[in-house]
């Protein structure tokens, strides 16, 4: 177990390194011109751009810039020159090209927002989707099954930016029966947090529930035809015990897989959801940073998203060993 974790952590570190190099290289391979973005439209001349480039070292060879970025994570660094220099203590992910604020502080502000969206919608989607999927597998061909198939198809076809905007327009602005989406820290105002997050949760939760419903239904149908389910019935167990203790238990590992991977993906920022509901999370931050050629934030958000995906992959693998006694981590 320990050996497994050490091995997986090493692989995770290498993965993140590769991603950071690729992101860095891709940024400069494109037409990014951060200096021009920073200096603004007015009063911007070649000399000023030159000064910015020089102070941030943007014209240095890419590997040198990358080396500075990486060493900053471990030792911290000073960014800029002379009196304008900004101190960025370790772990330093750089400072925003726009506001000169350390990137870590910006991420720290956005993360609770993204985490709130991710956890809330994941809970809704897994509860709703899995129960719908199981119920429709058990009553195959019935009205609930037909509804569930229709729901899964609709959910898979609808986009969050469409449904989200529609719901906001109708429920929030026209009928005024739902609170405007906003983020307040739960520690300050728990009820406000709940009501502010509710619309993004419901929208994203219901849409992803469609995936779960389809998946859980297929998985359950397959498992209900397994021999060990027939054995359970042959023992004289009640249908409830057969369905829950035997069938659902066996389909758990695949449900946990999608749950883990989805949550891992969402924690790194739900870019479209956050943009649709104007929530200041990591996803929205990343979208804006890409438009602004704001390299340090792009790097940080990409790495953060990659970190969560890698982390949850390891968690899901470890969960297999908990759920399925045949799986040994090695």
């Amino acid at each position: 177990m320990l050996r497994y974790l050490i091995k997986r952590s090493l692989i995770a570190v290498i993965t993140l390194l590769m991603i950071s190099i690729t992101t860095f290289w891709l940024f400069f391979a494109g037409s990014a011109n951060p200096a021009a973005q920073m200096c603004g439209a007015k009063a911007c001349d070649a000399a000023k751009i030159e000064r910015i480039n020089k102070s941030l070292g943007l014209k240095d060879p890419i590997h040198e810039q990358y080396g500075r970025f990486m060493s900053g994570i471990f030792t911290g660094r000073e960014i800029g020159e002379g009196a304008d220099a900004i101190k960025c203590p370790a772990p330093c992910l750089g400072v925003s090209f726009r506001t000169s604020e350390p990137v870590l502080d910006i991420i720290e502000r956005g993360l609770p927002v993204s985490a709130s969206i991710a956890v809330g919608s994941a809970v809704i989607s897994v509860l709703l989707g899995v129960s719908l999927g199981i119920a429709s597998a058990l009553k195959r061909g019935g009205w609930l099954d037909k509804f569930s198939i229709g729901f899964a198809l609709t959910g898979a076809s609808l986009q969050i930016f469409f449904l989200g905007l529609l719901l906001q327009m109708v429920l929030v602005y026209q009928l005024k029966i739902w609170d405007r989406p906003r983020y307040v820290p739960p520690s300050e105002d728990f009820l406000g947090w709940l009501s502010g997050m509710s619309l993004p949760w419901v929208t994203l939760g219901v849409l992803s529930a469609a995936t779960y419903a389809r998946f859980a239904r297929a998985e359950m149908l397959e498992i209900l035809s397994e021999d060990f389910v027939r054995t359970a019935r042959a023992k004289g167990l009640t249908p409830r015990a057969v369905n829950i203790k035997h069938a659902l238990r066996a389909s758990l590992s695949s449900i946990v897989t999608i749950f883990g991977l989805q949550l891992g993906g969402l924690l790194g920022g739900a870019a479209i959801t956050e943009t649709t509901f104007d929530m200041p999370g990591i996803g929205k931050l990343a979208v804006k940073a890409v438009g602004d050629d704001n390299l340090p934030i792009v790097m940080a958000t990409v790495l953060l998203a990659a970190f969560f995906v890698v982390l949850f992959n390891v968690i899901v693998d470890a969960m297999y060993a908990v759920i399925d006694p045949r799986v040994k981590l090695s």
Binding site: D227, K235, H246, R249, I323
Partner: peptide
Amino acid sequence: QQVSMIFQDPLSALHPF
């Protein structure tokens, strides 16, 4: 209880978990 069954392939007929 009164009637019980032994299946062909015990690996698939027993619950793996």
